[in-house]
Design a protein around this nucleic acid. Sequence first.
DNA 1: ACCGCGACTTGTGGATATGGTA
DNA 2: TACCATATCCACAAGTCGCGGT
Length: 677
Amino acid sequence: MSDSEDDIPLVQRAAAPSAKSTPKPAAAKAAAKPAAAQPQSRARTNGASKKKPETEDEDDDEESEEASSSSESEDEDSESDLPLAKRRKSKSPGAASTGAKRKRATPQRESEGAKRSKREPGSSKSGQVMWKTLRHCGVLFPPEYEPHGVKMLYDGKPVTLTPEQEEVATMFAVMKDTDYMKKPVFLKNFWEGFKEVLGKNHVIKTLDKCDFTSIYDWHMAQREAKKNVSKEEKDRIKKDKDEKEAKYKVAYVDGRPEPVGNFRVEPPGLFRGRGEHPKMGKIKRRVYPRDITINIGEGEPVPEHPYPGQTWKEIKHDHTVTWLAYWKDTISSKDYKYVFLGATSTFKADSDLAKYEKARKLKDLIVDVRKNYERDWESSDNKKRQMGVAMYFIDKLALRAGHEKDEDEADTVGCCTLKVENVDLEPGNKVKFDFLGKDSIRYENVVEVHPTVYKNLERFRRIDSTGKKKKPGDQLFETFDAQDLNKELKNIMDGLSVKVFRTYNASITLDRLLSEWEASKKGADVQSVDQKKVDYDVANKEVAILCNHQRSVPKTHTNQMEKIQEKLQALSTELKELEDELAAVQKGKGEGKKASADSLLSRIEKKKQAIFKVELQARSKEDLKTVALGTSKINYMDPRITIAWCKRNEVPIEKIFNKSLLGKFNWAMDVEPSFRF
DNA sequence: ACCGCGACTTGTGGATATGGTA
DNA sequence: TACCATATCCACAAGTCGCGGT
């Protein structure tokens, strides 16, 4: 790492998982199901008037009943192995019921507390049929490269490049003001790629003598020009583009229209790895139809493409998978790029629901799970002890599993791949974690742990199970890996894996915090929606900290805060003026007095509220500057918790979920207000 | 009993749309 | 009514995890 200066801002971890050595009380199995769960209390208190503009999708009607009821309760097996989607009545394609605002198709799934039996709905696991018919238009290719003819300099002299070479030079030139330019690995990888494109015996012999400034300038000029196009022209261009893209945006699954996620083929460019990625700067080749495998229903028209001489790499009809197309990544031979349906699709909704139901299932077992791994801390079997400690970290700190990685990937770790130097022991049974996790985001945290864990760690850091000394770079847990751990978890619960703990802990934390909030505010003065939203964010923040979802402080943050302060200044001056005025009026006499005093009074009140609101925002902004709330909202916190809370507290759901989240969580909207995770 | 493959979720930052403000 | 900074969207990288082949 370079200067620790702009290192990831260290999130205030103080609040992180209580230093308590004992696992959390596991939410005493939330009474959760107050028998009288307001039956059909559709009492949607929140202002969330149902008139959502309706996202193109789902016009599938069907009485929401049927789909659920049957499949729901008896879920277990037989054909119910089919993902939910499958079981939905599919509407005849044509019948795009324009009018009929469809209710969300997904009915309640409150699996009242316990026993939701084995089969999760929608779990797209192995071999299950995901669709009967599938129709789509394939993928959209990026435009071919258009040479600009701007010459770069080599050793001070202009060089003529072939279009192909120029394209690569341009990829590089354009990155002039990024700090990749300072990274030796990036430069080396780029040069290797560039050299190859140049061919042997080219005048360009070394990157040092290359000057791409002219191309960079050209690029900037282009950008500027684009910005200055007239509004009408811009609109026209956009409209054009939208029309060209329209057909790629939708796929028909069993006749139902579903949004396609990323239908665009990735354009060529230089690979930008995160952190110190060994492959940064490599050329990401252009992808052609011959590289792409299409998955589509039998008998459906094969998608077209703009390369007359070519054919798709393959046309498949695999009903057990949800992808529409894929190609091999050109950077890493073992990676694939997929085209999937969008987040609002039925496939995704089903698996989202399944994910949370699985986590809730874990909730019912968590007390035992904890008892078990705590017992393992004392085992005479070293491996068991290590696993027990790892499980503790995973559960308590919501660490990721951490699979083994290759040399040619960024050097990051998860729980199972922690190295001895990632964990420091401090007095008072305190453990200090410091490592780079996913995306090379630094995880830094000091936690007090159970003494037995502490003792174990002392040993794990020092020697391996054969008694051999460990050194930096050695695994903290050398006796097992993520796979082994997951295998063990399968014995505890069907479908259980490490990541489920992250989901579980995020969701249960939100649930707990929100309900504590409600308990403490019960009967208290009516709060503004703004205040409630801020309070929700506080809970959200705690979850984000648990999951280590950081963000870099926005560049403009300081600036913005100053502006807010100024605004506050102005407001309070105005307030002062009003108050003076009022005083003056009250002193004076005469007719209009009463009226103008009243009016002043109300203006003063308004002003005070405005001030309060700005202050609130200022505090919240400052408080959240290093925390990314979005990630947990999108991926970890069961949306039903939030929606139910909104209903109970008269907060319009739109205050918490933006448009795309509303779409993504459509499946959860009908949740009972009494829902508890 | 691995281990690479394949498919799907999670994650961040950059690009762009948008809505409040001068 | 253009600006302008933020809020949202999007691209695509980087994880997780089960499976099937050897």
